[in-house]
Design a binder for these strands. Structure first.
Lengths: 249, 249
DNA sequence: CCATCGCTTCCATTGAATGGTAGAACTTGT
DNA sequence: ACAAGTTCTACCATTCAATGGAAGCGATGG
């Protein structure tokens, strides 16, 4: 009974509190939060109150807790993806206008593609939800496009992941997929969420020939015409890269 | 020399670190960060390292610090504005398509309008920057639309702000502006950033007759035709309110 | 009306946070 | 190439802020 019997620092706990919210759940009961964060109720309560005092969290009636507007503001003012999204937005809008498909923008984080922006197909109401969503590299065209244009060392690390469970076959398949993607300059993959759609993605390449982002679209199977779609995406990706380069050389 | 000679808690300091980034500056030198956060260099260094271990911050070469992707992800997955933005997005796109003007969505935070989403006019490359921007209530049409439809108590508190410096005249002007806005059902105001533009905003009203958001557009002076614009905005605002109501009754 | 459940306050204990000092890594000027 | 300067990182004895069990409070419900 003293400074943390569990041996984790205050910072650890603050992070756990912020990260405790399950995806899409904007609010949580204090007691649930305490359980999810693995904290004694008393401690959770104290931390929440302190964070709320700064506006990083907000507390509603009956001990309900949510992320605070101020936190949203701080993060969206200075987000590392801000420059990227600003550079990409006009081109994404163009793509959306011309091709009328769902357009998305992803970056690589670990072995996953993290979607940082998305424009829905006109009329399709859905889909805005998945901003800040993740997809494993090997099941997303964006992931493939990103991984195919990374350092060889990083790719090797990634492929090592597949060695354990299934063996050499999977590694080779994956390696082939990546090198094919790299040669083609784009990635395509059957839709995971919806089996009747295909994903196409192209890398946004920086000055060091590395993919800093992937620009992708989701296309209904019957509208799948690579000849028309890929060049449009590649042109846009080059445009994004150019705008990025100008800001931070 | 012990646990905080300055008497602030670890949580306070963590918040200061996250909030230390000046608007739009995605990265900061460690020493600058320490100064901005009002922390001894050593302490700042330790906190940054701990936060970086969790991905809330990222450290680059040469002690440069930026907000982490993981923080962005957590906040954008569970942001309090998520439901609102999801509900509003389709309508904002409609407005943008039909009127071809800059569209924005704001909520009230303190005595300011906080812009949570924005769609740029087609062709105008600018403007995406100002998401997460703030404008004082009295100089933004969105702010007026929001404040005009709040509890009388809150409005009174707000008006009290103006009492001190200038006196009764300003309070009365402001009160008049608010009640006029409330009666009209929309707010209009000469552009602050650009003198040749006007802002128009309408409230998104919830079940308790309070404005939870404001939907606004920025119109070049020569295209200012209230008769055409206001009804379109009001229709969209009602649509947003309806979708919001469905999710959280 | 009492029982239950969840949020909040209180407070003695103690180990985690602190930050000065010192050294490493890097940049700049001569 | 060397020195002076600047900025980041590591170390570690001191001590006060964080801790969390216990008890109080308030609401819901049977």
């Amino acid at each position: 009974m003293a400074n943390s019997v569990s041996g984790d620092s205050v910072v650890d706990r603050v992070v756990r509190v912020i990260a405790a919210f399950p995806e899409g759940a904007s609010s949580l009961q204090l007691s649930d939060l305490a359980v999810r964060a693995g904290l004694p109720l008393t401690t959770a309560h104290r931390l929440v109150r302190q964070l709320a005092a700064h506006g990083l969290l907000e507390t509603g009636a009956g001990g309900t807790v949510r992320l605070g507007l101020r936190l949203w503001e701080l993060v969206n003012r200075n987000s590392p993806t801000l420059a990227l999204r600003q550079a990409a937005m006009p081109f994404m809008e163009d793509i959306q206008q011309v091709l009328n498909q769902n357009v998305n923008l992803a970056v690589l984080d670990g072995w996953e593609a993290l979607f940082v922006e998305r424009l829905s197909r006109r009329g399709s109401v859905a889909n805005r939800a998945k901003v800040a969503g993740r997809m494993p590299v090997h099941v997303s065209s964006a992931g493939l496009a990103l991984m195919a244009h990374q350092d060889m060392a990083l790719q090797a690390d990634y492929l090592a992941q597949f060695a354990d469970p299934v063996g050499k076959a999977t590694v080779d398949t994956m390696r082939g997929l990546l090198s094919e993607t790299a040669h083609q300059g784009y990635a395509q993959l059957a839709g995971v969420v919806d089996p009747d759609t295909w994903g196409i993605a192209v890398p946004v390449i920086d000055g060091k020939k590395r993919a800093v982002a992937a620009l992708g679209i989701v296309v209904p199977l019957q509208e799948m015409r690579l000849q028309a779609l890929v060049p449009a995406l590649q042109t846009a990706a080059r445009g994004i890269a150019r705008r990025l380069g100008r800001d931070e050389p």
